[in-house]
């Protein structure tokens, strides 16, 4: 496990997470849920195809599914804006989470994005506000929320769908404050130092797990998830089922308290003990 702490390995994970052959959210939706019905639109502005939402069954039980989808071929990638959601994507997600709450369905999330889209329209329509509301709503949900990061987990755009009771990462997924290129550009004014940045950012699944930010790392076959999609989908399904079993036992206030505590403890390590 130690070799994964070296910069080269971290960068290899980034490359894995970005691989063209890497399965995207749709593949897992097909592999995990039955009876899936996709629901479109945010009822405000449009339908953001970077976010797929709908209702399906997990082992027979109706659940709400919200997923970031990067797209398969080039044409689809463009239609889905490479998985970079506009505010409409986060507002579609909010709409479907409220719907899930109304009908008492758990919310299961599949996260895979470089980050929220950085466009003119996105700013004009309140990208920051959309993400903020999404975060806050997730924390207030009265139903269980469980998320899996399957590829790139970039910045607030990923966090908006990962503010859940339980969160797992696939072994080759990465989760970071922004892309290593962006990180290197901001900190060292040199995007070419991305590899070096990746090694310092603690963005690999095992490093994120070690920091206590995710509950589980879901193993992938050698060569990555594409080598055995069925097995990875099954492992994700098991994680969803296991998490729900645990969360179902909680009443609403305990469930919400569980989620609050999960995030409340993050970043209080080593702070002035007199206040702790």
């Amino acid at each position: 496990m130690d070799e994964q702490m070296t910069p080269v390995s971290a960068w290899e994970r980034v490359e894995h997470a970005r691989e063209a052959a890497r399965p995207t959210a749709k593949t897992y939706i097909d592999g995990i849920f039955t009876d899936f019905v996709e629901l479109h639109g945010d009822r405000r502005f449009g339908d953001d195809q970077a976010v797929i939402g709908g209702i399906g069954r997990l082992e027979g039980r109706p659940v709400t599914v919200i997923a970031q989808e990067k797209g398969g071929d080039t044409k689809e990638k463009i239609a889905r804006n490479f998985g970079c959601a506009n505010p409409e994507g986060y507002r579609k997600s909010q709409r479907l989470m409220r719907q899930a709450e109304k009908f008492g369905r758990p919310v299961l999330l599949i996260v895979d994005t470089q980050g929220a889209y950085c466009g003119i329209g996105a700013e004009e329509r309140g990208q920051g506000q959309a993400i903020a509301e999404n975060l806050q709503l997730m924390m207030q949900l009265s139903v269980p929320a469980v998320a899996v990061l399957i590829g790139e987990g970039g910045s607030g755009g990923a966090l908006a769908l990962a503010s859940a009771n339980r969160v797992a990462m696939l072994e080759n997924a990465v989760y970071s404050i922004l892309s290593p290129e962006g990180f290197a550009a901001i900190l060292w004014k040199d995007a070419a130092r991305a590899k070096e940045a990746a090694g310092l950012m603690r963005m690999t699944a095992r490093e994120v797990y070690a920091m206590g930010i995710v509950e589980e790392v879901i193993p992938e076959p050698p060569g990555g998830a594409q080598e055995d999609v069925q097995a990875v989908a099954q492992a994700m399904k098991d994680f969803f089922l296991r998490s729900l079993e645990e969360l179902d036992a909680m009443d609403t206030s305990t469930l919400r308290e569980d989620r609050y505590r999960r995030f409340r403890r993050m970043g209080d390590c080593g702070l002035d003990p007199q206040n702790g």
Binding site: A132, Q136, M139, L159, S163, I177, R202, R264, M266, G267
Partner: peptide, 26 residues
């Protein structure tokens, strides 16, 4: 924005602060 040098830990503060404000609002 987020403090780069604290990586994901700083990202998590977005949820943490928003959650506290959610309770305050409720």
């Amino acid at each position: 924005g987020a403090r780069m040098q604290e990586g994901l830990v700083s990202l998590m503060q977005m949820t943490k602060t928003s959650a506290a404000l959610g309770r305050h609002g409720e």
